[in-house]
Amino acid sequence: MLRVSGLHARVEEQEILRGVNLEVRAGEVHAVMGPNGSGKSTLAQVLAGREDYEVTAGSIELDGEDLQEMAPEERAHAGLFLAFQYPVEIPGVGNSYFLKAAVNATRKARGEQELDAMDFLQLLRQRAKLVDVDEALLRRPVNEGFSGGEKKRNEILQMAVLEPRLAVLDETDSGLDIDALKTVAAGVNALRNGDRAFVVITHYQRLLNYIVPDHVHVLQGGRIVRSGGSELAHELEEKGYAGLNGDSAGA
């Protein structure tokens, strides 16, 4: 489903990704772990199409289509979803209004009929329940004044409503207490199925106790330096990134 080959990317003059290879098949959950500054968030932003990053080499394909040719909204229409590490506050735009606009922009782009207010509300309520989001959040402006946990839950709600093919979760666990973490993980697990894939980017192994990955990759110095099964996450927890062979931690 997702194929990243030899991906190099830089921001301003600094090269951050230096040859990332990653292949994700439908139904799989991949965890990408790594120390601060290893390029985890850059990878997420490059996948979503952030223009501040320049891809200098390599390719990204989603279902055989070249993502680099696509604007961020076109990637979303193609089924890519990024749960932001830092969800943006947007004063003046209602949360549910925004979600309806997002759903219908996607449906329109795919040549599907747009949802009317009633149908959308029904969908929204059902998904809010699925990921355990208080309906009061839906009536507030997007992320404005939300607590850290509310912002992350709101990302998961957006994912549940938009039903992506591939969801990239960028440090969705950062800043969450254990209860919020469980809620977010339960939301993700509720959406797991054979057609959908996840790339879970995280610094800590803790989240992976609740979202059990099929594959774990270690990103260091802009490259994936090790890959393995879910046991790799536990090894990292014990030894730390410095305990890995090769590059030093904290690059």
Binding site: E73, F98, A102, A105, L162
Partner: peptide
């Protein structure tokens, strides 16, 4: 970027933010 990453075309996202 946030709005576009959720599927809103650039012009629509732009208008939404200015309106807001």
């Amino acid at each position: 970027f946030y709005l576009r990453a959720r599927g809103l075309p650039r012009e629509q996202a732009y208008g939404m933010l200015v309106y807001a």
